[in-house]
């Protein structure tokens, strides 16, 4: 029997399946108490529609490994940050053509209003060029912005800093 922690850590994100929930930083804790497994996850965004699927996938994977009594709990604090994506997760993003987030902004003190386009120093995940243009600050999922590379002309998604 695979250990509960190992089984839970192997479940992948439904929207970015190149990442495990552990690499995404969503998996916060796995506790085993006799036969019972309690898994704690933290949502990436308040409206993340993948939470129910993550829970179901965790329950199914653990059941497949012989853990029949599984509870998935939500932890809202501390709030998820893109800084929680592991180095292995970042490498997996780039390998699959996505740009990994830079350091998340600090939310201590007053929040500065920014009326200029978001400036990021990025490299194209395909050709490595730093000549990239932001095409949309919002993308197909809450966590991504859209870019295009001026060198290889390919569009790509960037996982946003939050």
């Amino acid at each position: 029997m695979v250990a509960a922690r190992e089984a839970a850590a192997s479940v992948t994100d439904p929207e970015m399946p190149m990442l495990t929930l552990e690499d995404l930083g969503v998996l916060r804790d796995v506790e085993v108490d006799d036969e019972r497994v309690v898994v704690t996850i933290t949502p990436t965004y308040s409206g993340c529609p993948a939470m129910a699927t993550m829970r179901d996938d965790l329950v199914h994977r653990l059941r497949d490994e012989g853990f029949d009594d599984v509870e998935v709990r939500v932890s809202l604090h501390p709030a998820w940050s893109s800084d929680w994506i592991t180095p292995r997760g970042r490498a997996a993003l780039v390998e699959h053509g996505l740009s990994a987030p830079g350091p998340a902004p600090s939310h201590d003190g007053p929040v500065v209003l920014s009326l200029q386009p978001t400036r990021r120093t990025l490299a194209c995940p395909r050709c490595g060029s730093s000549e990239v243009d932001l095409t949309s600050e919002f993308g197909p999922t809450a966590c991504k912005a859209l870019y295009r590379c001026a060198a290889c002309l390919e569009p790509f998604e960037h996982v946003k800093e939050i």
């Binding site: 309690v38 993948a50 939470m51 129910a52 699927t53 829970r55 998935v72």
Partner: peptide
């Protein structure tokens, strides 16, 4: 997958 199952957003 999404929206077919109720998930208590405050579970636990």
């Amino acid at each position: 997958a999404f929206g077919t199952d109720f998930e208590d957003p405050l579970a636990g």
